[in-house]
Amino acid sequence: MTTRLVVGLDGHASGERALDFAIKQARLIGDCDLVVAYVIEWSPFSFQTAEENAQRHKRREEEISTVMSRVIDPAVNKLEGLGLKAVGKVRHGDVADTLNAIAKEQKAAQIIVARSSEGGFSSRIFGSSTFNLVKAADLPVTVVQ
C-alpha cells in the first residue's frame, strides 16, 4: 500500500527544509507519494471594505496562481525530477486546520512541516501555525528544525 505524506510549504527556507526531509522519508519508505500543500492564511470572519469584497474573487485567483507558480509547481517539479510522485494543493484558511483537513482528505500517514523562524507579534500571542497544528492534528506531525 502506498504511503502518502503531506508537506506544508510556506515559500521560505523553512518550507524547503520540510521538503528535503520529506524526500528522505519518501526514499526510505519506498512506495510513497507526496502532497505538497500551501495554505494562504485567510479567515471568513475578517473585515474588508466593499471595494475589496467586489475584487475578492479576482484577488483569490491571483493569490492561488502566484503560489502555484512560485512555490507549488517548482516543488512538484523538483520531486518529479527525483522520480517521486507528487501533487500540489493550494487552499485558503487557517494554516493548521487546513493542513490537517488536507491530510485527512488525502488519507495521509503524516504531515511534515518545518518550524518557522518568521514569527510575528500575533504568533507570540496566539501561538504559531506549527504549534497549533501539533496541538490539533488528527494524525502524526513531524516538525523539522
Binding site: 494562504i40 485567510w42 471568513p44 470572519f45 475578517s46 473585515f47 474588508q48 471594505t49 466593499a50 469584497n53 475578492r56 474573487h57 483569490r60 493569490e63 492561488i64 487552499r91 485558503h92 484558511g93 487546513t98 483537513a101
Partner: peptide
C-alpha cells in the same frame, strides 16, 4: 459558515458581506 462550501474558502463569506 455552517452552509459554506469549504472549496469556496478565500472568497467573500456571508459574515464578511454582512460586516461590510
Amino acid at each position: 459558515g455552517d452552509y459554506s462550501d469549504p472549496d469556496d474558502a478565500g472568497e467573500v463569506s456571508h459574515f464578511q458581506a454582512l460586516a461590510t
